[in-house]
Simulated scan of single mutants.
Amino acid sequence: MQNHKFSDIEVAAVYRAIAERRDMRHFLPNPVAPEILTKILHAAHHAPSVGLMQPWRFIRITDTNTRKAIHQLVDKERVKTAQAIGEYENTATGVDSKSAEFLRLKVEGILECGELLVVSLCDKRDGHVFGRRTLPEMDIASVSCAIQNMWLAARAEGLGMGWVSIFDPVELGTLLNMPADAKPIAVLCLGHVSSFYKEPMLVETGWATAKPLAEMVMENTWDTSK
């Protein structure tokens, strides 16, 4: 039987990139080398996609005013998210202990990162039926695979990346002159960092605790005890 396995060093590098990937929020202003950015975008474009529809579209933001406008959209939604968290907490427990804590979190690095990219679902997606007739959301799954490829490639290159999803997609689409049936799903902050978080930032800040794999794996049928 032919051995298709990578070398031990290559295997270790793949698993290291997976384990050390972090959703980064703190960046240095140093520029990203153009050839490295191209390699990272190629990594995204190598992602699997349902029916080979390749629904990902990337908009590189190089205009300072546009970057600031995106930051304003995110900051506006950040406040609304804090309000929604507080309302949920009040409904669930009668006490809002999270909204102020959320506002203290750093949720993006839009103004600091070396590169800013907006990732969108393409327009005319209804024409892609292969693999999406019963699961139309597979277009989002495909774009998510592309973003994960970027994350791993960036980590291997020593760069940090952060996925910002705190924005109104209609407002962002309008700002960037997107077709009405396209949909932005990510603002990606990419750039150099002074260090990588040892644990996910939300774990380090005490916002959340990661659950163990054992709670996520079931066999043959849904396990209601998990």
Rank of each mutant, 00 (worst) to 15 (best):
D126V: 08
I40A: 09
L117I: 15
A186V: 15
D181H: 12
P200S: 05
V107A: 11
I110K: 02
E10D: 07
C189D: 00
F130D: 12
L73W: 02
E108D: 15
I36G: 04
W151P: 03
T66A: 04
A69Y: 00
K226N: 08
C122E: 14
R67F: 05
P184D: 15
G191H: 12
W222V: 08
A182Y: 03
K76Q: 10
T62H: 02
E101T: 10
R125V: 05
E35M: 08
G114F: 10
G191E: 02
I85Y: 11
P169Q: 12
G86W: 02
C189Y: 03
I140W: 12
S120A: 11
P29F: 02
D23T: 06
A182I: 14
E101L: 08
D223F: 07
L213V: 14
S142K: 01
G173N: 03
D8V: 10
A141Q: 05
K98Q: 12
P31W: 02
A69D: 13
V14P: 09
A13R: 11
R21K: 11
I36P: 06
V74C: 01
I70S: 02
R16K: 13
M178N: 00
F102S: 01
A17Y: 13
M24P: 00
D181F: 04
A182W: 05
W163L: 09
G127L: 15
L111C: 03
A47F: 01
N30E: 15
G160A: 15
A47N: 01
E77M: 12
E199P: 09
R57L: 13
P200Y: 05
F102R: 07
R104E: 10
E10Q: 11
P179T: 11
F27G: 07
H45W: 13
M201T: 07
E108A: 06
D139Y: 10
S120G: 07
L28C: 07
E215H: 03
L121C: 12
E101N: 13
R21W: 09
R104Y: 04
I166V: 13
R16S: 11
L202M: 09
D139R: 07
I85L: 14
V95L: 05
Q54M: 15
R155E: 07
Q72S: 06
